[in-house]
Design a protein around this nucleic acid. Structure first.
Lengths: 145, 145
DNA sequence: CCTTATAGTTGCACAAGTCAACTTTCTGAG
DNA sequence: CTCAGAAAGTTGACTTGTGCAACTATAAGG
C-alpha cells in the first residue's frame, strides 16, 4: 500500500473513532463526563494543582476551566482550599465525595473497557495504547514546531 | 503489567486523544468540519445515498443529519436530486463545488497527517489504523450485544 | 504602597448533539 | 383506488463543551 493510502486509511479510522467519542463517553461515564473525570483525576494525582495548571495541561481556555471547576465545586466534588473563589493560585483538592465518585467512575470505566476488549490479548491493548500515545506526541510536536 | 493496568493505560491514552479531537479537527479541516467532510465523503463514495442512510451509518439523530445536510445545501456543496426539501428518500449528490471542496480538503488532510507522522514508518501507521478499526468494531459489538 | 501583570469570572456566541412534536410523503391493505 | 399508518424530514427548545473578549480581583515587585 502506498504511503498516501496508509495515511488516508488512518485518517478514516481516526475519524470514526472521534465521531464516536461522545457515544463512548456516555457509555463509559454514566455519571461523570469525560472532562469532569479528567479534572478529578488530575487533581487527585497532582498535589497542589491549580486552575491555571489545568489550562496548560489540557490546552483549554481558562474560561472553560473556570466553569468546569465551578460546576465541580457546586457538586461538592472539589475543594478550593481556602474557599475563596477567584483567589489566584488556590490549590485544588478532592472532597471525600469527590474521591468516592472518582473511584466509582474509574471502576466503571475499567469494567466497561474490559468488556469491550474481552477478546484482545494484553499485548495488543498495550500496543494500541502506545500507538495513541505516540500519535498524540507526534501531533503535539508538529503543532509546536 | 496486570491487565487492569494495561486497560487503565489505554483508557488514559484514549481520553487524551478524544479530548484533543476538536483541536485535531480544526488543524485538519481549516475549511470543512470533520462532520461535513464525513458527509461529503460518504455522499461521494455511495451512489444514491440518502439522508436516512447517513442516520444509520453514523448513528446520529435524524435531526442532526437534517440540519447538517441543509447547511451543506445552503453552502452549495450538496444537491438534493429533485430539489424538493422534505422529499423522502431523495438521493443526495455532490455539486461540482462540493466535489472541488472535498478534494481540496482531502488533500489538506493528507498533507497535514503526513506531516504529523513524518517519522513513522508505514508499517506502524497501518498497525495503528488496524488497532483503531478493531477497537471500533469491538465497541460496536459490545454495545449491540 | 501603588502599578502592573496575571488568574479567574462572566457575558456572548457558536457548533454539534439530543428529544419530542409536527409535517410530509409513501405504501400497502382493504 | 383510497386512506390510514409508518417512515422520513423538519423544527423548536434545550444541553454541553468550547472560545474570545472584556472585566475584576489579586499578587508581587520596584
Amino acid at each position: 500500500m502506498a504511503r498516501d493510502d496508509v495515511i488516508e486509511d488512518l485518517y478514516h479510522q481516526l475519524s470514526s473513532l472521534i465521531r464516536r467519542s461522545r457515544e463512548l463517553s456516555n457509555e463509559l461515564h454514566p455519571g461523570l463526563s469525560l472532562i469532569a473525570h479528567t479534572f478529578l483525576n488530575l487533581v487527585e494525582s497532582t498535589p497542589h494543582i491549580q486552575a491555571s495548571d489545568l489550562v496548560d495541561l489540557l490546552g483549554l481556555d481558562k474560561s472553560t476551566v473556570s466553569r468546569q471547576l465551578n460546576q465541580l465545586f457546586d457538586e461538592g466534588l472539589l475543594d478550593r482550599e481556602g474557599g475563596r473563589p477567584g483567589r489566584r493560585g488556590d490549590p485544588l483538592s478532592l472532597t471525600s465525595k469527590g474521591r468516592r465518585v472518582l473511584a466509582a467512575d474509574a471502576n466503571q470505566v475499567r469494567s466497561q473497557v474490559t468488556q469491550w476488549l474481552a477478546d484482545w490479548d494484553s499485548r495488543s491493548i498495550a500496543d494500541f495504547a502506545r500507538s495513541i500515545e505516540r500519535f498524540n506526541a507526534s501531533v503535539t510536536q508538529a503543532v509546536l514546531a
